[in-house]
Amino acid sequence: MNFENLKPQVISILSEEHVERDVKLKNLCQFLSDNVDYYNWVGFYFANQDNRTLHLGPYVGAETDHTVIPFGKGICGQVAESNANFVVPDVSAQDNYIACSFTVKSEIVVPLFVDGVNIGQIDIDSHVIDPFTEADERFLEFVNEQVAKLF
């Protein structure tokens, strides 16, 4: 996968004028899902630091019951506390995993920072075991750097 080719379109989607932030984020999720064949669920969670919970934002993919996730719970909740990327090659081998669907085989979560504060994350599920590489991490860090400009 050549992520460099996707970067200009990411910037274009996020810089559209007269488009609300959540619509831009939903369009970005759709773009990522459409252009990376193993990105089967793409969405954002945003942190409520007071309640120490994550709240589901724009996403594309199967419906999820996980609209609120406590810090520390599941992969997303762990990233909210660690402030570090988390790549799960095989979700069945992960103890603190919140199952969304039996079709999900792997997951990557990359925190979203604004002014040094972790305000949320991009979460991607795949129906493939172990598809995520360091290139995915670097690309999603780039995506989040662009998203951060919206806040």
Rank of each mutant, 00 (worst) to 15 (best):
V23M: 13
I129K: 15
K7Y: 08
I119A: 01
I119D: 04
Q121S: 12
N48Q: 05
N2D: 14
V42Q: 12
F102Y: 11
K105W: 02
E17T: 12
Q94R: 13
H127M: 11
Q49W: 12
N144K: 03
F46L: 15
L14N: 10
I98P: 01
D130T: 03
N96Y: 03
V114I: 15
D136M: 02
I98H: 01
T67C: 08
T64R: 06
D130A: 15
V128P: 08
F113E: 09
A99H: 07
T64A: 11
V79D: 03
D125H: 04
V143Y: 10
A99W: 05
Y45L: 10
V79H: 04
Y59W: 04
D123T: 11
E145K: 14
L6F: 06
P111D: 07
K149W: 09
Q49V: 15
S15F: 07
D125E: 06
V91S: 05
E137T: 14
Y39S: 01
L14S: 11
K26D: 08
P131G: 06
I69H: 08
G61W: 01
F3L: 09
P8Y: 07
E134R: 07
F31I: 00
I11W: 02
Q78A: 05
R21V: 15
L25T: 03
E17I: 10
H66T: 04
Y38W: 02
L140W: 02
E63T: 10
S12M: 10
L25Q: 01
L28D: 05
S106Q: 05
F132Q: 02
D115C: 11
V23D: 10
N27Q: 13
M1V: 12
I124L: 08
L6A: 08
P8R: 09
G74I: 05
A47E: 01
D123W: 04
D65R: 13
W41N: 12
V117E: 13
P8T: 08
S101A: 11
H127Y: 14
V110C: 11
V117L: 11
D65P: 12
D37W: 02
P111Q: 02
Y97T: 05
S92A: 10
G74R: 11
D125C: 01
V23K: 08
D65L: 15
N5P: 03
T103S: 15
L140R: 00
S106F: 03
G116F: 12
C76K: 04
F44L: 04
V117H: 09
R52S: 14
V143W: 10
Q78P: 01
M1L: 12
F151S: 12
Q121K: 01
E141P: 07
Q94E: 14
L112T: 09
Q121L: 09
